[in-house]
Protein backbone atom coordinates (compact mmCIF):
# COMPACT_ATOMS: atom_id res chain seq x y z
CA UNK A 1 0.00 0.00 0.00
CA UNK A 2 2.97 2.37 -0.34
CA UNK A 3 2.91 5.18 -2.89
CA UNK A 4 6.20 3.95 -4.36
CA UNK A 5 4.51 0.67 -5.13
CA UNK A 6 1.55 2.34 -6.77
CA UNK A 7 3.58 4.80 -8.79
CA UNK A 8 4.45 2.13 -11.35
CA UNK A 9 2.75 2.84 -14.65
CA UNK A 10 -0.14 0.43 -14.30
CA UNK A 11 -2.35 2.72 -16.30
CA UNK A 12 -1.07 2.10 -19.81
CA UNK A 13 -4.01 2.21 -22.20
CA UNK A 14 -5.42 -1.20 -23.01
CA UNK A 15 -8.54 -0.20 -24.84
CA UNK A 16 -9.16 -3.52 -26.54
CA UNK A 17 -8.70 -5.48 -23.34
CA UNK A 18 -10.87 -2.96 -21.52
CA UNK A 19 -13.81 -3.52 -23.84
CA UNK A 20 -13.40 -7.31 -23.63
CA UNK A 21 -13.32 -7.38 -19.83
CA UNK A 22 -16.26 -5.04 -19.57
CA UNK A 23 -18.22 -6.98 -22.18
CA UNK A 24 -17.75 -10.24 -20.29
CA UNK A 25 -18.81 -8.68 -17.01
CA UNK A 26 -21.78 -6.98 -18.61
CA UNK A 27 -22.96 -10.18 -20.33
CA UNK A 28 -22.77 -12.05 -17.03
CA UNK A 29 -24.65 -9.24 -15.29
CA UNK A 30 -27.51 -9.11 -17.82
CA UNK A 31 -27.86 -12.83 -18.59
CA UNK A 32 -27.29 -13.81 -14.96
CA UNK A 33 -30.01 -11.59 -13.64
CA UNK A 34 -33.05 -13.59 -12.62
CA UNK A 35 -35.53 -11.06 -14.01
CA UNK A 36 -33.97 -11.31 -17.47
CA UNK A 37 -33.89 -15.10 -17.37
CA UNK A 38 -37.59 -15.07 -16.47
CA UNK A 39 -38.24 -12.82 -19.48
CA UNK A 40 -36.54 -15.35 -21.75
CA UNK A 41 -38.48 -18.22 -20.15
CA UNK A 42 -41.68 -16.27 -20.76
CA UNK A 43 -40.85 -15.96 -24.45
CA UNK A 44 -39.94 -19.67 -24.56
CA UNK A 45 -43.41 -20.48 -23.29
CA UNK A 46 -45.06 -18.84 -26.34
CA UNK A 47 -44.15 -21.48 -28.98
CA UNK A 48 -44.87 -24.27 -26.50
CA UNK A 49 -48.35 -22.91 -25.70
CA UNK A 50 -49.04 -22.15 -29.33
CA UNK A 51 -47.90 -25.61 -30.38
CA UNK A 52 -49.93 -27.41 -27.71
CA UNK A 53 -53.09 -25.42 -28.51
CA UNK A 54 -52.75 -26.15 -32.24
CA UNK A 55 -51.98 -29.82 -31.51
CA UNK A 56 -55.11 -30.22 -29.39
CA UNK A 57 -57.41 -28.41 -31.82
CA UNK A 58 -55.92 -29.63 -35.11
CA UNK A 59 -58.63 -32.17 -35.82
CA UNK A 60 -61.43 -29.75 -35.05
CA UNK A 61 -63.00 -27.07 -37.19
CA UNK A 62 -61.28 -24.35 -35.12
CA UNK A 63 -57.92 -25.87 -35.94
CA UNK A 64 -57.92 -24.93 -39.57
CA UNK A 65 -58.79 -21.32 -38.81
CA UNK A 66 -56.40 -18.51 -37.93
CA UNK A 67 -54.06 -16.29 -39.90
CA UNK A 68 -51.62 -17.56 -42.51
CA UNK A 69 -48.76 -19.14 -40.64
CA UNK A 70 -50.75 -20.52 -37.77
CA UNK A 71 -53.01 -22.53 -40.05
CA UNK A 72 -49.99 -24.25 -41.59
CA UNK A 73 -48.32 -25.29 -38.31
CA UNK A 74 -50.24 -28.56 -38.01
CA UNK A 75 -48.89 -29.60 -41.38
CA UNK A 76 -45.24 -28.82 -40.68
CA UNK A 77 -43.45 -28.16 -37.36
CA UNK A 78 -41.11 -25.68 -39.07
CA UNK A 79 -44.01 -23.26 -39.33
CA UNK A 80 -44.32 -23.15 -35.54
CA UNK A 81 -41.13 -21.05 -35.44
CA UNK A 82 -42.61 -18.56 -37.90
CA UNK A 83 -45.98 -18.53 -36.15
CA UNK A 84 -44.42 -17.99 -32.71
CA UNK A 85 -42.23 -15.12 -33.94
CA UNK A 86 -45.25 -13.61 -35.69
CA UNK A 87 -47.23 -13.81 -32.43
CA UNK A 88 -44.49 -12.19 -30.34
CA UNK A 89 -43.60 -9.48 -32.84
CA UNK A 90 -46.20 -6.80 -32.09
CA UNK A 91 -45.90 -6.66 -28.31
CA UNK A 92 -44.04 -9.38 -26.40
CA UNK A 93 -40.69 -8.86 -28.14
CA UNK A 94 -40.82 -5.04 -27.84
CA UNK A 95 -41.74 -5.45 -24.16
CA UNK A 96 -38.83 -7.77 -23.44
CA UNK A 97 -36.44 -5.58 -25.37
CA UNK A 98 -37.80 -2.43 -23.74
CA UNK A 99 -37.19 -3.82 -20.27
CA UNK A 100 -33.58 -4.80 -20.88
CA UNK A 101 -32.43 -1.92 -23.09
CA UNK A 102 -34.31 0.69 -21.03
CA UNK A 103 -32.48 -0.65 -17.99
CA UNK A 104 -29.03 -0.29 -19.60
CA UNK A 105 -27.91 3.07 -18.21
CA UNK A 106 -30.94 4.11 -16.16
CA UNK A 107 -30.72 0.91 -14.13
CA UNK A 108 -27.13 1.67 -13.14
CA UNK A 109 -28.13 5.26 -12.37
CA UNK A 110 -31.01 4.11 -10.18
CA UNK A 111 -28.83 1.79 -8.07
CA UNK A 112 -26.10 4.44 -7.95
CA UNK A 113 -23.63 2.00 -9.51
CA UNK A 114 -23.19 4.34 -12.49
CA UNK A 115 -21.02 6.66 -10.41
CA UNK A 116 -18.92 3.71 -9.26
CA UNK A 117 -18.38 2.59 -12.86
CA UNK A 118 -17.40 6.08 -14.04
CA UNK A 119 -14.87 6.42 -11.22
CA UNK A 120 -13.39 2.91 -11.65
CA UNK A 121 -12.82 4.44 -14.31
CA UNK A 122 -14.80 3.12 -17.24
CA UNK A 123 -14.67 5.70 -20.07
CA UNK A 124 -18.21 6.80 -20.86
CA UNK A 125 -18.05 6.01 -24.59
CA UNK A 126 -16.83 2.50 -23.81
CA UNK A 127 -19.55 1.97 -21.22
CA UNK A 128 -22.29 3.10 -23.61
CA UNK A 129 -20.89 0.95 -26.42
CA UNK A 130 -20.76 -2.15 -24.26
CA UNK A 131 -24.23 -1.50 -22.82
CA UNK A 132 -25.62 -1.19 -26.36
CA UNK A 133 -23.84 -4.34 -27.58
CA UNK A 134 -25.17 -6.36 -24.66
CA UNK A 135 -28.71 -5.01 -25.16
CA UNK A 136 -28.48 -6.10 -28.82
CA UNK A 137 -27.21 -9.50 -27.73
CA UNK A 138 -30.17 -9.86 -25.41
CA UNK A 139 -32.60 -8.99 -28.18
CA UNK A 140 -30.93 -11.60 -30.40
CA UNK A 141 -31.11 -14.12 -27.55
CA UNK A 142 -34.81 -13.39 -27.13
CA UNK A 143 -35.50 -14.10 -30.81
CA UNK A 144 -33.24 -17.15 -30.77
CA UNK A 145 -35.05 -18.51 -27.70
CA UNK A 146 -38.39 -18.36 -29.51
CA UNK A 147 -36.88 -19.91 -32.64
CA UNK A 148 -35.13 -22.81 -30.92
CA UNK A 149 -37.97 -23.67 -28.58
CA UNK A 150 -40.39 -23.32 -31.54
CA UNK A 151 -38.27 -25.65 -33.64
CA UNK A 152 -38.05 -28.32 -30.95
CA UNK A 153 -41.73 -28.07 -30.03
CA UNK A 154 -42.78 -28.13 -33.68
CA UNK A 155 -40.59 -31.16 -34.39
CA UNK A 156 -41.94 -33.05 -31.35
CA UNK A 157 -45.62 -32.27 -31.94
CA UNK A 158 -45.91 -32.14 -35.71
CA UNK A 159 -42.70 -33.48 -37.18
CA UNK A 160 -40.63 -31.66 -39.76
CA UNK A 161 -41.31 -32.25 -43.41
CA UNK A 162 -40.60 -30.59 -46.74
CA UNK A 163 -41.62 -26.94 -46.65
CA UNK A 164 -44.46 -25.65 -48.78
CA UNK A 165 -43.65 -22.01 -49.56
CA UNK A 166 -46.17 -19.15 -49.79
CA UNK A 167 -46.00 -19.51 -53.56
CA UNK A 168 -47.07 -23.13 -53.31
CA UNK A 169 -43.66 -24.52 -54.32
CA UNK A 170 -42.04 -27.15 -52.13
CA UNK A 171 -38.45 -27.21 -50.88
CA UNK A 172 -36.65 -29.87 -48.82
CA UNK A 173 -36.83 -29.84 -45.01
CA UNK A 174 -33.10 -28.97 -44.87
CA UNK A 175 -33.53 -25.97 -47.13
CA UNK A 176 -36.68 -25.12 -45.18
CA UNK A 177 -34.69 -25.03 -41.95
CA UNK A 178 -32.37 -22.44 -43.47
CA UNK A 179 -35.37 -20.38 -44.57
CA UNK A 180 -36.78 -20.45 -41.03
CA UNK A 181 -33.40 -19.45 -39.58
CA UNK A 182 -33.40 -16.58 -42.09
CA UNK A 183 -36.77 -15.48 -40.72
CA UNK A 184 -35.38 -15.50 -37.16
CA UNK A 185 -32.26 -13.58 -38.21
CA UNK A 186 -34.35 -10.94 -39.97
CA UNK A 187 -36.63 -10.54 -36.94
CA UNK A 188 -33.57 -10.17 -34.70
CA UNK A 189 -32.10 -7.51 -36.99
CA UNK A 190 -35.48 -5.76 -37.01
CA UNK A 191 -35.19 -5.27 -33.26
CA UNK A 192 -31.89 -3.37 -33.38
CA UNK A 193 -33.46 0.06 -33.93
CA UNK A 194 -35.79 -0.41 -30.99
CA UNK A 195 -32.92 -1.62 -28.80
CA UNK A 196 -31.01 1.57 -29.54
CA UNK A 197 -34.07 3.72 -28.86
CA UNK A 198 -34.26 1.97 -25.49
CA UNK A 199 -30.60 2.68 -24.76
CA UNK A 200 -31.13 6.32 -25.75
CA UNK A 201 -34.14 6.73 -23.45
CA UNK A 202 -32.07 5.02 -20.78
CA UNK A 203 -29.50 7.83 -20.88
CA UNK A 204 -32.20 10.46 -20.42
CA UNK A 205 -33.62 9.33 -17.10
CA UNK A 206 -32.59 7.90 -13.76
CA UNK A 207 -35.83 5.91 -13.56
CA UNK A 208 -35.46 2.62 -15.46
CA UNK A 209 -39.22 2.02 -15.57
CA UNK A 210 -39.67 5.29 -17.46
CA UNK A 211 -37.14 4.25 -20.11
CA UNK A 212 -38.71 0.78 -20.36
CA UNK A 213 -42.26 2.12 -20.75
CA UNK A 214 -41.00 4.73 -23.19
CA UNK A 215 -39.39 2.10 -25.39
CA UNK A 216 -42.53 -0.05 -25.53
CA UNK A 217 -44.56 3.09 -26.25
CA UNK A 218 -42.31 3.96 -29.18
CA UNK A 219 -42.93 0.52 -30.69
CA UNK A 220 -46.70 0.68 -30.14
CA UNK A 221 -47.03 4.26 -31.45
CA UNK A 222 -44.95 3.32 -34.47
CA UNK A 223 -47.28 0.40 -35.21
CA UNK A 224 -50.35 2.62 -34.80
CA UNK A 225 -48.96 5.27 -37.16
CA UNK A 226 -48.10 2.50 -39.59
CA UNK A 227 -51.74 1.43 -39.65
CA UNK A 228 -53.06 4.87 -40.65
CA UNK A 229 -53.22 5.07 -44.46
CA UNK A 230 -53.34 8.90 -44.27
CA UNK A 231 -49.75 8.83 -43.02
CA UNK A 232 -48.42 6.61 -45.80
CA UNK A 233 -45.80 9.27 -46.60
CA UNK A 234 -43.92 8.61 -43.36
CA UNK A 235 -44.50 4.84 -43.26
CA UNK A 236 -41.17 3.85 -44.87
CA UNK A 237 -39.25 5.60 -42.09
CA UNK A 238 -41.17 3.99 -39.24
CA UNK A 239 -39.33 1.66 -36.89
CA UNK A 240 -41.90 -1.11 -37.26
CA UNK A 241 -42.89 -0.69 -40.93
CA UNK A 242 -40.75 -3.47 -42.41
CA UNK A 243 -40.92 -5.85 -39.44
CA UNK A 244 -43.33 -8.15 -41.28
CA UNK A 245 -40.99 -8.48 -44.28
CA UNK A 246 -39.54 -11.66 -42.80
CA UNK A 247 -42.13 -13.38 -45.01
CA UNK A 248 -39.71 -12.75 -47.89
CA UNK A 249 -37.81 -15.84 -46.72
CA UNK A 250 -40.84 -17.96 -47.46
CA UNK A 251 -40.99 -17.07 -51.15
CA UNK A 252 -39.49 -19.19 -53.92
CA UNK A 253 -36.50 -16.90 -54.47
CA UNK A 254 -35.28 -14.79 -51.56
CA UNK A 255 -34.74 -11.34 -53.06
CA UNK A 256 -32.09 -9.42 -51.09
CA UNK A 257 -33.39 -6.19 -52.57
CA UNK A 258 -36.72 -6.80 -50.87
CA UNK A 259 -34.98 -7.21 -47.50
CA UNK A 260 -32.75 -4.16 -47.90
CA UNK A 261 -35.26 -1.40 -46.98
CA UNK A 262 -36.02 -3.00 -43.61
CA UNK A 263 -32.36 -3.43 -42.74
CA UNK A 264 -31.50 0.11 -43.91
CA UNK A 265 -34.28 1.64 -41.81
CA UNK A 266 -33.00 -0.27 -38.77
CA UNK A 267 -29.43 0.88 -39.44
CA UNK A 268 -30.65 4.48 -39.71
CA UNK A 269 -32.49 4.25 -36.38
CA UNK A 270 -29.46 2.64 -34.71
CA UNK A 271 -27.22 5.40 -36.02
CA UNK A 272 -29.60 8.21 -35.07
CA UNK A 273 -30.49 6.96 -31.59
CA UNK A 274 -26.89 5.90 -30.94
CA UNK A 275 -25.49 9.30 -31.86
CA UNK A 276 -27.95 11.18 -29.68
CA UNK A 277 -27.33 8.77 -26.79
CA UNK A 278 -23.57 9.18 -27.16
CA UNK A 279 -23.63 12.99 -27.30
CA UNK A 280 -25.94 13.08 -24.32
CA UNK A 281 -24.19 10.49 -22.15
CA UNK A 282 -20.62 11.71 -22.67
CA UNK A 283 -21.48 15.23 -21.52
CA UNK A 284 -24.19 14.65 -18.92
CA UNK A 285 -23.68 15.40 -15.25
CA UNK A 286 -24.00 12.20 -13.27
CA UNK A 287 -25.74 13.26 -10.12
CA UNK A 288 -27.50 10.01 -9.26
Amino acid sequence: MSPAETATPTTAPRTGGGVRHLLGSELRLVFGRRRNVVLLLGLAAVPILLGVVIFITQDTVVGSQGPGFIGRVAGNGLFLVVAALFTCLPFLLPLTIGIVSGDAIAGEAATGTLRSLITVPVPRTRLLLVKAIVALCFAAAAVLTIAIVGLITGWVLFGISDLVLLSGDTITAGAGLFRVLGVAAYVAMSMSGLVMVGVLLSTLTETPVAAMAGTVTVAVVSAVLDSLPQLSAIHPGLLTHYWIDFAEFLRLEVDPAALAPGLLVQAAWVLLAGTIAWSRFTTADISS
Binding site: L22, G24, S25, T111, T113, S116, V120
Partner: peptide, 23 residues
Amino acid sequence: GPAFHPWLSGRANLVRLDACDAT
Protein backbone atom coordinates in the same frame (compact mmCIF):
# COMPACT_ATOMS: atom_id res chain seq x y z
CA GLY B 1 -23.00 6.40 0.24
CA PRO B 2 -22.40 2.90 -1.09
CA ALA B 3 -24.11 1.79 -4.32
CA PHE B 4 -24.22 -1.80 -5.52
CA HIS B 5 -26.50 -4.20 -7.36
CA PRO B 6 -28.93 -5.47 -4.72
CA TRP B 7 -29.41 -8.90 -6.29
CA LEU B 8 -25.69 -9.71 -6.29
CA SER B 9 -23.67 -10.79 -3.26
CA GLY B 10 -21.18 -8.40 -1.73
CA ARG B 11 -18.35 -10.38 -3.26
CA ALA B 12 -19.97 -10.60 -6.71
CA ASN B 13 -20.39 -6.82 -6.65
CA LEU B 14 -16.66 -6.37 -6.04
CA VAL B 15 -15.85 -8.86 -8.80
CA ARG B 16 -18.07 -6.85 -11.14
CA LEU B 17 -16.31 -3.57 -10.29
CA ASP B 18 -12.86 -5.08 -10.59
CA ALA B 19 -13.72 -6.68 -13.93
CA CYS B 20 -14.70 -3.25 -15.23
CA ASP B 21 -11.26 -1.89 -14.29
CA ALA B 22 -9.20 -2.23 -17.47
CA THR B 23 -5.93 -1.72 -15.59
